[in-house]
């Protein structure tokens, strides 16, 4: 995952359908439970849907389809290409 232009963002600010890669520095902010579901640094994460009222978020990370709340998503930094 090398990009020409890397932009640091969070899962919460991804657009629907957009893909990012979880950054190494997020590790301390990812709850153990989420890590165990495959939400690991370096993993590919795609935002699939946003629930009505903008929360929670429906994501696919490392092959797992999960819904998490926006406050959790906002803590997890991702790298995405321009």
């Amino acid at each position: 995952m090398t990009f020409l232009y890397q932009i640091l963002s969070t899962i919460a600010t991804l657009q629907i359908g957009e893909i990012g890669y979880i950054s190494e520095e997020s590790l301390d902010f990812i709850p153990l439970k989420l890590l165990e579901m495959g939400c690991l640094p370096g993993a590919e994460v795609q935002l699939l849907q946003i629930a009505p009222f903008k929360d929670p978020l429906y994501i696919c990370v490392n092959g797992s389809h999960l819904a998490i709340r926006i406050e959790t998503a906002a803590q997890i930094k991702v790298l995405k290409s321009e």
Binding site: P31, S64, L66, A67
Partner: peptide
Amino acid sequence: KSFFLIEMPN
């Protein structure tokens, strides 16, 4: 403290 996580099964 609140933490919410649910799997969306196929």
